[in-house]
């Protein structure tokens, strides 16, 4: 622009003309405008920064909270699944079933070997560990499994009498004898298959299974006979006796045979 007094070229921001020294009216307005613009710019910048920062702060926190809430929700769902005893049992059974399925050949071979070697105790724990009782692949083993479990239950009760173990409910020889009597009196029904109306030709009683069942019964009879000092006749007849009768006979013997264990009991 030019000075209106001398025509000299001056800048818009020059307050006075550098040539004639007169005041440049345009400059004052320009400077005031620039100041205003600068202030407006600063205010806008400040507002943008403030709003952006606030937005970022809020958003980042909200995202963190959302993630934490999602993680907590997932954990609570899993906890709910695991804390419920039925669910836990289900998970356990599913896991064991998967393992058994994966190792089906080995499991079957082991069972067969245990059956052939008449390993009643080992088999009963193997069944428990691999949850084989409800496994449809081993439905032929149904009575064999019951025999092994019955043998082990009677064995455990005898051990409890011999070693004087009191159990968690302060059981004594009377209760252990009652338990043994239950398994003996139920043997023909549940192991023999009378309760299930088993046909003697059924695959559950055929071949090695049949031989195992017969031997398991004899082994159980021998075990009860020896540990309760029964005569051959008493031992053989216990399978046809009633539950109370068996229990009474065993307890009577037990009191004489294991007096230390029965100390204080009437």
């Amino acid at each position: 622009m030019k000075c209106k007094y001398c025509g000299y070229n001056i800048g818009l921001e020059d307050e006075r003309c550098p040539h004639c020294g007169n005041i440049n009216d345009e400059a004052a307005k320009h400077i005031a405008d620039m100041k205003q613009y600068q202030e407006d710019y600063e205010q806008t910048k400040e507002a943008v920064i403030t709003k952006t920062t606030r937005f970022n702060n809020r958003t980042s926190r909200a995202v963190i909270i959302a993630i934490m809430a999602a993680v907590a929700a997932v954990m609570l769902i899993i906890t709910g699944r695991y804390s419920d005893i039925e669910s836990r049992e289900k998970i356990k059974k599913e896991k064991v079933a998967k393992e058994v399925e994966k190792n089906r050949e080995n499991v079957t071979a082991t069972l067969k070997e245990m059956e052939e070697h008449r390993e009643y105790l080992a088999m009963s724990y193997y069944i428990l560990n691999h949850q084989l009782r409800g496994d449809e692949h081993y439905s032929d083993y149904s009575r064999v499994f019951t025999a092994a479990i019955s043998y082990r239950s009677i064995y455990d009760d005898i051990l409890n009498i011999v070693d004087g173990y009191k159990g968690y409910e302060e059981e004594g020889p009377k209760e252990w004898c009652d338990n043994i009597a239950i398994y003996i009196s139920d043997w023909n029904s549940y192991v023999g298959g009378e309760f299930w109306d088993d046909s003697p030709e059924s695959s559950m009683h055929a071949g090695e299974h049949g031989a195992f069942l017969s031997d398991a019964k004899k082994a159980t009879q021998d075990m009860v006979q020896v540990y309760f000092d029964l005569s051959d006749e008493q031992a053989a007849s216990m399978w046809t006796m009633g539950r109370d009768e068996i229990s009474g006979m065993l307890y009577e013997k037990c009191r004489d045979l294991y007096p230390e264990v029965n100390g204080g009991e009437e």
Binding site: Y125, N129, Y165
Partner: peptide
């Protein structure tokens, strides 16, 4: 310690299988 020999035998089998 509780003279529970049946549990001892059970533990042996379960440990062996696992």
């Amino acid at each position: 310690s509780r003279d529970d020999y049946a549990a001892l035998i059970e533990g042996k089998y379960m440990n062996t299988f696992n």
